[in-house]
Design a protein around this nucleic acid. Structure first.
Lengths: 209, 209
DNA sequence: CCATTTTTCTAATTGCTGTTAGATTACCGC
DNA sequence: GCGGTAATCTAACAGCAATTAGAAAAATGG
């Protein structure tokens, strides 16, 4: 009996051996992508950062493009599943505004910790070749749907006044959070403190009179 | 009598002839930079978009790097001077929160109209070679100082409560506005409407009780 | 129209970077 | 230790893109 799905077959028995270097490659690639952009992230740089040669990367990835896509998918997936778990862990009767507050903090913390891959997924989406973009965008939409629901629920609960466009609100929040990766400095303010300021500003700002 | 400053000497008599194509090149370059990133914006693409050959660009710019820097400087300068003029045009007794509101709208509209160059200046700052980055960052700081003052004044006027970090607020606002370039679609909401939603959210969100 | 200057093109040159095939080394069970 | 597999390296190839020098073409002024 073959055990599992076609997808699972792609990653053989979760070795742990080669899988570890695969992860290191993804990390290095994420850093390079964030620093230099899509076209600027060179395989030689990525490899040398972890003591390898460019050619060796091809043992782990089919092409540069595949590597980049893996980074982006991973970064987005991390943020997405983290938020889903967080929301699922809240008591069922948690009021929508609190859920929203939690989402803001979770997204921000995810960004600031897994920031390289996550922000690559977001900021480089337009620089990437069309086929990669299409697949990554599908993930973006799924994640965006999560936020849409959060905001709709909050409005239904009366926590968001009726004269603001929820799409605008959603994009404004995510824009503010996503950009934090670029200016965040641990010594100035903690992620929790930043999240507190932003979510208090947003939540009060959206309240009805 | 020589008329003007050393700076003015760099741009000869404002011809209008070659200066026009120079502007077209800058526009095309801005579009390419926004779409493909720093390393991805190829001279051949930029040139062909305005019916030229790559080599011809060197008549107007010393190097690819110089062209990119010109785009970034121009985009930032546009937003900066536009905001300065707007603020200067307000009555002297305009209350600080209103000034802030005007700033939000001005920045957003500037971004959405001159978005290619302006957002290149902001989003590609980390992808660009160090010497270019240093010069462009100087401009960023000057523009940031404008916003710092706006927020400080608003707080002094009692429009911003004391328990939020003004740096965080500033970055959150600019992040929300800057990201709009990526999701704005004219058919969905006007720049003015977007600005209204964001500034009302921010201003109410920052009010003291 | 002619001479001069401005602007653009053509056709190399150069260097860099993704990719690959085959050799080499590290690892692992026996 | 030994055989075999896994992982990495070496040394090329191929294509692309910035840059340049000099030839053409356009514009300009007289």
């Amino acid at each position: 009996m073959v055990s599992s799905s076609a997808l699972a077959a792609v990653e053989p028995p979760p070795d742990g051996k080669a899988e570890a270097t695969r992860a290191r490659i993804l990390d290095a690639a994420a850093r390079a992508l964030r620093a230099r952009g899509y076209a600027g992230a060179r395989l030689a740089d990525i490899a040398s950062e972890i003591g390898m040669k460019a050619g060796s990367l091809y043992y782990h990835f089919d092409s540069r493009e595949a590597l980049v896509e893996a980074v982006m998918a991973r970064g987005l997936d991390y943020v997405h599943t983290t938020l889903e778990r967080r929301l699922a862990s809240l008591p069922a009767d948690t009021p929508p505004p609190v859920r929203l507050e939690q989402a803001i903090e979770t997204h921000l913390v995810g960004m600031l910790t897994q920031g390289d891959a996550a922000s690559a997924s977001i900021k480089l989406i337009w620089q990437v070749p069309p086929d990669v973009r299409a697949r990554v965008l599908a993930g973006h939409r799924a994640y965006g749907a999560l936020w849409k629901k959060l905001l709709r629920d909050a409005r239904r609960a009366g926590a968001i006044r009726d004269d603001v466009d929820l799409s605008v609100v959603r994009m404004a929040i995510l824009g503010a959070l996503n950009w934090a990766v670029d200016w965040y400095r641990p010594e100035r303010a903690s992620p929790a403190a930043i999240a507190r300021d932003i979510s208090s500003m947003v939540l009060r700002g959206l309240e009805a009179e």
